[in-house]
Structure formats: structure tokens, C-alpha cells
């Protein structure tokens, strides 16, 4: 019984160790994507350094140069980038 509990605990720790980098990687991927999107719209930013998820396909992005943008998919299927103060 003790062995079984130990194995469960081990599996849980391994799962947690794998899960944390995965979500961190997701965030990095999202930041990279938003960085590209902002650049594609020709807006100043540099790199996106912070992202806040507002809703599905709706983000608040903070750039390394201090700019902030609301990046979202509108009803017509267009990606919009609005500067925020």
C-alpha cells in the first residue's frame, strides 16, 4: 500500500514538472505570436513581455517599449490591434 502511494506521488510530481514548462511554453508561444501580430500591423512594440487573457481570442499585450495593445479577433474574423493607454 505504501509502495502504491509512493508511486502515485511520484507520478504526480512528474506530471507537475511536465505541466509547468508546457504552460510556460504556451505563454512564450502566445507572446511570440502577439509580437508578430503587432509588428504585422506596423505598430511599435519590440517584444511582447506580458499577456493578459481577457476572453477567447482577446488579449491585453504589454510591450517592452511600454506600449500596450488590445489584440482581439473581431466578429468579421479580422485580427484587430488597438493601442491602449
Amino acid at each position: 500500500m505504501n509502495k502504491l502511494t509512493g508511486r502515485w506521488a511520484q507520478s504526480l510530481i512528474v506530471a507537475m514538472l511536465l505541466a509547468v514548462p508546457a504552460s510556460a511554453q504556451d505563454e512564450e508561444t502566445l507572446k511570440k505570436d502577439l509580437t508578430s501580430v503587432i509588428a504585422l500591423h506596423g505598430k511599435p512594440c519590440g517584444q511582447v513581455v506580458g499577456v493578459k487573457v481577457l476572453a477567447d481570442n482577446d488579449y491585453a499585450a504589454s510591450c517592452e517599449d511600454g506600449n500596450k495593445y488590445h489584440v482581439y479577433l473581431n466578429a468579421e474574423g479580422r485580427v484587430m490591434v488597438d493601442a491602449q493607454k
Binding site: 508561444t29 502566445l30 511570440k32 505570436d33 502577439l34 508578430s36 501580430v37 504585422l40 500591423h41 481570442n57 489584440v71 479577433l73 474574423g77 479580422r78 485580427v79
Partner: peptide
């Protein structure tokens, strides 16, 4: 190599 939002943006353009 391209994120989903970037793909949509490129398609829009």
C-alpha cells in the same frame, strides 16, 4: 513557425 493570430492577420492582409 507562425502563430494562429499571425496566420489570421496575414490572411486578412
Amino acid at each position: 513557425a507562425i502563430g494562429i493570430f499571425s496566420k489570421i492577420t496575414l490572411k486578412n492582409q
